[in-house]
Every structure is written in C-alpha cells, then in structure tokens.
Design a protein around this nucleic acid. Sequence first.
DNA 1: TGGGTTTCTGACTATCAGGCGAAAACCTCG
DNA 2: CGAGGTTTTCGCCTGATAGTCAGAAACCCA
Lengths: 246, 246
Amino acid sequence: MGSVWSSPERPAYPHQALAVVLQVRARRLHAMLWERPNEPFAGAWALPGGPLLADETLGASVARQLTAKVEVSHLGHLEQLETRSDPGRDPRGRTVATAYLGLIPTHVDPALPDDTAWHPVDDLPTTAFDHGSIVRSALVRLRSKLSYTNVGFALAPPEFTVAELRELYVAALGYDVTATNLQRVLLRRGVLEPTGEQAPPGRAGGRPAALYRFVTPELSVTDPFAVFRPPSRRPGSEGRRGGLEG
Amino acid sequence: MGSVWSSPERPAYPHQALAVVLQVRARRLHAMLWERPNEPFAGAWALPGGPLLADETLGASVARQLTAKVEVSHLGHLEQLETRSDPGRDPRGRTVATAYLGLIPTHVDPALPDDTAWHPVDDLPTTAFDHGSIVRSALVRLRSKLSYTNVGFALAPPEFTVAELRELYVAALGYDVTATNLQRVLLRRGVLEPTGEQAPPGRAGGRPAALYRFVTPELSVTDPFAVFRPPSRRPGSEGRRGGLEG
DNA sequence: TGGGTTTCTGACTATCAGGCGAAAACCTCG
DNA sequence: CGAGGTTTTCGCCTGATAGTCAGAAACCCA
C-alpha cells in the first residue's frame, strides 16, 4: 500500500467478475455455461460474467451480469470464491477475474438465452480460459461447505421430503448418503423442521412423506449459512472451552 | 466474458495484493502492520502489500512485497483470502485489493523494518482503509480452518510439546482448550506423531514433556493442509457412503 | 382384501469429545 | 537423601454422535 500510488507506474488490468452458477437438475449437479461465438476459444463454453464497472462492487457486478442469463431473484446463495490472476489466462492480454459461487434451488427452471445451457459438472464440455479449473474450485467449495454449513438450503425448494433432500445431497456431493441419517442429523442439529404437512405419494404408492423446511436463521447478515451446530454442546462443557470440533 | 473485450470501455483499476501475516507471540496472536507516514491515513496502521506488476501472479506479488518486510522463507503458509472491491475503499481513487493470509511459526522472530511492528489482533491500533476489516476476515478464516485442517502446522515450530501446542491453539482460537483432548484428538487423527525425544522440564521441575511433530502429508500440492481425518472411518462403513461428516 | 412400494421409527453398535483424577517423572530445598 | 511441589502423561468414565438394520406404518393398485 502507499507504494501503489507513490510509485511511478500504477499498472491496471481489466477486472472481471465471473459466476459459477450451480443447480441440481435431474439428480445431477449442473453448471451454467454459455458458448463463445468468437475467438479466442470460439465454440468453447465459458462462465457468465463481464467487466467490473466504475462504481460497482464485485458482488454487485456479478449480480448485474447474471441478470443477462437468469433472474437474480432465483439465486439462493452467492459468495465470493477466488481471484485468478495468471498473466496468461487470457491470450488477448492480461485480465484479473474474481469468481463467485451461485446456487439455484431445484424447484425453479429459469429460462436461459440461446447461447447458454446447463452442463453436468462431472461431464463438462470444452471450456474456455481457466474456467474449467474455476468450476472445479467451486465444486470443492460447495462440497466441503455442504457438510458443515447450511448451503444445502440454497439448493433445495422451500419445502421438501427427506427423500428429495437426499437426492440433492447425493447429486451435489457425488457420493451416496443414507436418508435416515441425513434426516436425523439435520433434525438434531436444528436446521430442519417439519412443516406438519405431507407430500402425496408417487404413482407407485407408498407411505406419504412428511414435508420439511430449513429453519430460517436470523443470523449474520453477511453469511446466513454460516452457523450449523447451534446448541448441541457436549457433556458438561460450559462456555467456550474444550477441544477442537469447530 | 467476451463482453469484457468487445465492449467499448474496458475499465481498469490498480490492483494490489495485501497480506495478513499472523504469528503467535507471547501467547497472543499478532498481525504484522506498518505505520503509514503519509496521507491518507497518515499515522494509521496498514497491511503490507503493493501493486500487482505486469507479469506477476497475485500469489507471487504478495510473496515479493512481503520480502520488504520479512523473509518469505519464514512463511509457514500462504493462501488467498478474499478480494475487496468497494469503490470507496481508497479515498484517492478506485483500487481493487486481493488479500492473502500468511502464517509464521512461533520459533522464528524475523527482523522487521522500523515502520513495521506486530500488534495483538484483539487490540489493534487505528487501521487504514478497510484493513481492519480484512484482518477480521483473516481471523475468521484461520479459526475455522484450525479446527478442520492442519494449518496449526504453520504456526508451530518443527518440534513441540503438547503444552506448547496448546498455547498456540489457545492464542489463535481465542478460547481455552484442554491439553488432554488436543493431544488425543490430533494423535488419533494421525496428524501428530511423537519424535521419541523429550523436552527438558522448566526451572520449576515437572515431568519432562514428550516432543511431537506434525506428520508431513505428501498430499495435494495445492493445499498441503487440506486433509484432516485420514483413516478414522466409522463402524462398518466402507468406501464413500453414509451420512455427512465431511 | 392382499401384494407391492415407499417412508418412518426404534434399537443396536462403534466412535468420538470432554472431564477428571491418579500415576509418572522431574525439580529444589532442607 | 528424602519430602514436597510441579508438570506431564495416561487411563477411565460419561454423554453425544454417526452409521446400520429391521420392522412398522401408510399408501397405491388390482
């Protein structure tokens, strides 16, 4: 700092905001990509995004650019992911890009422009720039956060059965999860609560499933999904003392 | 993307790399800051950092700028934290800053320039720009990562006793931790291993403490501190199946 | 009414975290 | 050289948690 402005040169490079928008569709986790019509990387698929404007926060910039693809109101979650600065990441010249992670709940199916489409994250097409690598970063982030925060909230519809929630977690995590535990764990942690209503059984019959919803936490405004294990303290521990466990 | 270069304007702002360098000193967690001699924020304390140069990665930039303060070889860990883009964060004009989190182990005491000093994170002086807020972000990151990764490694000397390690965790986490559990938990998780040697007891006597070291994981090159719970699987679970638990 | 299907619930087990106290190993002082 | 003080280590106990499994419950269709 200081040297930024006192030094003779103040190098500046176009800064862009990108978004990895994820949604579970047909039991698979998908990423929203658009197909580039022009060089470089013509025909390859890229993340939505664009330049950071004059009086814009990066967060506001992502939200604005996403409007060209989907309604921002559909986004259940949006958080900063990481900033890529490799000088060679764009063959036309240097750019710095800050990527965001966006989540869309399953129950909405936003209309997309013609050049934009959903792609399963485990079977991506040819990607432009370093965007494939950015998607992988987003996956790592999502998967780790699913197990110790409430981001699952942002992937789920307002009301759901345990079976549906299980499908979401299986799709997002990439490995199998037992429904029994998922329900009990989330219930005990206090993040899930029954609505009292039931979902109609499928065409094959079966016991009607109880509907649940996530408990809306009136928590920190900055990160509403931050907290996970509210009261579940250990044996005789009081206050903040003990081992680790986060 | 695409629109970044096809649009008539390509706004660009000076990009800088900042570092929140943390170290436990005298049982308290400290941050490295330097005192600004000039306006704006003359007399206030700022994070080390500076402009991103032409052919530099952000990571390389932080490392280079830190050289002005400490030897980079002292850094036990360096990871990207977040990018700040508030248009008003610098009164002189718009800048975008990417902050990194750096950790220095306790056993080194690097010589600092005259304008640079360590400050306890829970008692910071007046800070410049949004740097105080960035330090708080770094704290949140460090504290959460301490409980589910091996970053503690980067704060500790190569060999240490359980008591010393406890001091580190207490200082970094900000709350008390029992030595018994810390040792057992870390041992069971397989991140700690005894060296076989002992540390000489203090002047007051007492049983000599066994020396431990962190098990160096030959893991992912990208994030050597990523993994935490290697083998400790549950009852009869095989492969990747089960509930959550990360 | 009976077979098929899906969901829900309870029981059982292994693991884990936290706390406590006794034992071990070392010091210093009389 | 033994007694008292100090620090660490180790074992045991308790409560909570994750995972599995099987049976009961509730619904459909024929």
